[in-house]
Amino acid sequence: MTIGPTGSGKVSLARQMARSGLALDLGDFGPEVIAKAKLCLLDFLSCAFEAGHHP
């Protein structure tokens, strides 16, 4: 795993996504959007943890 720019000088997709997420102002979204995003994130994490032991 590399931290920072890759050897080619490009920033990884994961880092770009993290920066985009951190740049969001949650005040720009309504409460229903925030609630749905939380539900989707929890669903994703539960699937990822459950699938962690599969090849």
Rank of each mutant, 00 (worst) to 15 (best):
E32G: 08
G4T: 05
R15D: 10
L41K: 06
T2M: 10
K36L: 14
K10I: 05
A37D: 05
G21M: 12
C47M: 08
F44I: 05
L45M: 13
L39Y: 08
K10P: 00
A23E: 13
G27N: 11
Q16M: 15
L41T: 08
G9S: 02
S46A: 07
A18H: 08
L13C: 11
D28H: 03
C47F: 07
A23R: 13
A23S: 15
L45R: 12
S8H: 06
A14I: 03
G27Q: 06
P31I: 00
D28Y: 01
K10C: 02
T2S: 11
I3F: 04
G4C: 03
K36R: 15
A23P: 03
K38G: 03
Q16L: 15
K10S: 06
G21R: 05
L45P: 01
P55G: 08
I3P: 00
A48G: 01
E50P: 01
P5D: 07
K38E: 14
C47T: 07
T2K: 11
L22T: 15
L24G: 01
S12P: 04
E50A: 12
P5L: 14
G21Y: 08
P55Y: 07
L24Y: 02
A51E: 03
F44N: 04
L39E: 14
Q16Y: 13
S20M: 15
P55T: 06
G27I: 01
M17P: 00
A48Y: 05
F49W: 13
T2N: 10
I3T: 11
M1Q: 08
K36E: 14
S20I: 13
S20E: 15
I3H: 02
F29Q: 04
A48W: 04
R15W: 03
A14L: 14
L39P: 00
S12E: 02
S8P: 03
L39S: 12
V33I: 14
I34N: 02
H53A: 14
G21F: 10
P31A: 05
S20W: 12
F44P: 00
R15A: 15
L39G: 06
F44G: 01
R15Y: 05
H54F: 08
L24R: 06
G4A: 01
K36V: 02
L41C: 09
L13G: 09
G30M: 01
G7T: 12
F49M: 15
G7I: 10
C47P: 00
F44C: 05
A37Q: 04
